[in-house]
Design a protein around this nucleic acid. Structure first.
Lengths: 223, 223
DNA sequence: TTGACTTGCCAAACAGCGTTTGGATACGAT
DNA sequence: ATCGTATCCAAACGCTGTTTGGCAAGTCAA
């Protein structure tokens, strides 16, 4: 029976402190601002001692990426849970808003998890980052399943026909693309409201999942 | 009268060689693989001598970013020119394909120009990177202008009503998002064809700009 | 052609980086 | 109490971007 010795607790707390410090450095100046020696300095240790807790800087980044995926997934999950009972489309839009809100609040983490940012870094295949990424898609798949009338059972993406796969990925691609453009200051020159733009386009893409009685506005809203 | 002395020519050639070497290092291992000393080593010079041609590593990256923007814009421009006379929608789709093809061929450059990748780097406001980015949007605006029946005159984005701005940005957001996801290996687990997915969604989004006689298929292609 | 002046280039140094090594110290389990 | 292991540190290695001072070469006017 694994009772926690004082060494184990100290180790656990130190690992948490290390990742917390590294995450702060990441949020403040991006991946290039996260330095092994800098973390060691802040936690008051010799750089060599850190190797007791992480095998390398890449391992530390793996932890950061995993943590960020879970943080994003948690934000979307909460939006999904909080909107229980609402119209399926509104639940999906709530998830969309949560996705954008998290990205706006954590732009460095957003870029870290979605684009290659580290010199020689390659995520370990079947590692924690891969499974963590899946948790982000889960609430969206649940919401879409609900909208499509599949009840609570999780949509199995791989079993869907190609058309539906394309519709789903197109939806997520638009979400991801608009948020990515906004986060990286490519929308600013247009002087448009990022959230309004995103919600407008997502609602437009989802207009067909409204109850049939609402379909009358389809041809008037589009050229 | 600025005739080119042999010093001037040598300088111009060296600047070209430096950026070429740096770009190769970028393509091979991302921004983190581009090192001042590495470039100096490859062009056979002392690191300090490079400061005659670029003020700092950030200045070198500014040149790389500008060059990449122009490279991408050139690829899309060529697709636009080569498709002259075709259906407006097909011209737009040709530009979309060119955009993706360039990104697939130059993923490091793609990530470099669209997302924050450099530690303390901040693009000089009103600098060359800002104007270079605009050249990417130009062929898309021209193609959309043609599709909307505005003739050859460039669509002035800022003067468009909000609805049209949203439609345009939504289109580009989908394009950018899907390509970005594919480039960064987030589409691979889905086992979908990236190009087929992209063209499918873009064609779907553009189905309304077809000539009126073709509108009959709209409701059958969508759930 | 000579002189003055600018530019190009290098060697050396500084502070910082990730990582490895060897040895000392403190803890946990037997 | 002892053995073994986990923890921690000092020092070093080779890398990084950048600065400094000085020397050689190219440019241009007198």
């Amino acid at each position: 029976m694994p009772t926690e010795s004082r060494r184990d607790r100290h180790r656990r707390e130190l690992v948490e402190e290390i990742t917390a410090v590294a995450r702060r450095q990441l949020d403040e100046g991006g991946p290039g601002n996260v330095s092994w020696r800098g973390v060691a300095r802040e936690v008051g240790m010799n750089p060599a001692s850190l190797y007791t807790y992480f095998g390398s800087l890449d391992d530390l980044f793996t932890a950061l990426i995993t943590e960020s995926f879970h943080s994003l997934a948690g934000a979307v999950d909460q939006a999904f849970d909080d909107s229980e009972g609402a119209e399926p489309v509104d639940r999906l839009l709530a998830c969309v808003r949560a996705y954008r809100a998290w990205a706006v609040a954590n732009p460095r983490q957003f870029n870290l998890i979605w684009t290659d940012q580290l010199p020689g870094y390659a995520a370990p295949p079947d590692g924690p980052t891969v499974t963590a990424e899946q948790t982000v898609y889960r609430p969206f798949l649940l919401a879409v399943g609900e909208a499509e009338g599949c009840g609570d059972r999780l949509v199995e993406f791989a079993t869907l026909p190609t058309d539906d796969q394309h519709r789903l990925l197109g939806l997520f691609g638009t979400l991801h693309g608009l948020v990515s453009l906004e986060i990286n200051s490519h929308l600013a020159p247009s002087m448009v409201d990022g959230e309004a733009l995103l919600v407008d386009r997502m609602a437009h893409a989802l207009r067909h999942v409204h109850p049939p009685r609402d379909r009358s506005h389809i041809d008037t809203s589009e050229k």
